[in-house]
Amino acid sequence: MKIINSAHAGTLESSDIYIQINPFKEDKIELELESSVEELYGDAIKELIIKTLEDMNVSFVHVKAQDKGAMDLVIKARLQAAVLRACESDPVWEEL
């Protein structure tokens, strides 16, 4: 999927995550993460974000994520919502 626009999803509220997505000039996933549980789960969250993006075949993307202790299902849902918004696309369920 190709990122056409900037897009965001989620909130800054507790147990949620706020995600902003922007097109990026290089063929890679550029990830900026801040998390209230960074020490314990920072690496796991980054891994999940990258895996989710790879499953959707997304590259050339800059992701800024502000995590407030969100469960995996929330991180996936918010990230996918932001990507689909940025690609102006309906879900391809097999990739989600």
């Binding site: 999803a9 989620g10 469960m71 299902l73 929330v74 996936k76 849902a77 918010r78 996918q80 919502a81 689909l84 918004r85 879900p91 989600l96």
Partner: peptide
Amino acid sequence: KDSARLMVYHALKH
């Protein structure tokens, strides 16, 4: 609507 739909989808599978 889109974001809630995805969240419910993932919750159902959780």
